[in-house]
């Protein structure tokens, strides 16, 4: 009973989710410009290492602030919905990507049994979407890629995700002090 109450979302949690959705939605929106510019000039690998992880921070930031099951998924999906309303050049694919990213971040916290919300957990929740996203990319842009490069992208995306996931969790930690 006490556990159920602890996991129930209050209006405050939903308000925090809204703030995260706006901040991350704006970050997502502005990430597209440096990411696409870097991709066009220096190639996809450099762009991935430098910026791709920014798209994964919604989950770790929301989860580290709210500390309840489902927060990582909702943080990422709501941010994707806000990004779509702004609007984004990635169009409605952001909802599919956002759901996949949120689900993987959520799995990260579920693996830790929703007991750890620190920088390490943030890095894990940021890295895990990197396992799935290159395959979604391959489904969309596969004709311009080789299978071998998808695995390289996966490593790059996971590294970038882990760095930005850790940053998101450290932002939340700084705010909770």
């Amino acid at each position: 009973m006490a556990k159920t109450r602890m996991y129930r979302y209050t209006a405050i949690d939903f308000s925090v989710l809204a703030v995260v959705a706006v901040v991350i939605g704006i970050v997502f929106y502005f990430t597209a410009i440096p990411y696409e510019l870097t991709k066009a000039v220096a190639g996809k690998l450099v762009a991935r290492l430098g910026f791709y992880g920014l798209w994964f921070i919604g989950g770790p930031l929301a989860a580290s602030l709210i500390r309840k099951p489902g927060a990582a998924f909702l943080g990422e999906v709501l941010a994707a919905l806000v990004e779509m309303m702004l609007p984004t050049p990635y169009a409605s694919s952001v909802l599919i990507y956002g759901s996949a990213q949120g689900l993987m971040s959520e799995i990260g916290y579920a693996l830790l049994r929703y007991r750890r919300w620190g920088v390490g957990a943030g890095a894990l929740a940021g890295a895990l979407p990197g396992l799935v996203i290159p395959f979604l990319d391959y489904a969309l842009w596969g004709e311009t890629l080789t299978e071998a490069i998808v695995w390289v992208y996966m490593v790059a995306t996971m590294i970038s995700g882990a760095i930005y996931g850790a940053i998101a969790a450290s932002v939340a930690r700084a705010l909770r002090k």
Binding site: Y9, F14, A21, V23, I26
Partner: peptide, 18 residues
């Protein structure tokens, strides 16, 4: 309703946070 609340609040917060 919670998610609808979050989303409508998010829409109202966009100009403030900007």
């Amino acid at each position: 309703k919670g998610l609808a609340f979050s989303l409508s609040l998010a829409v109202r917060l966009i100009p403030l946070m900007n």
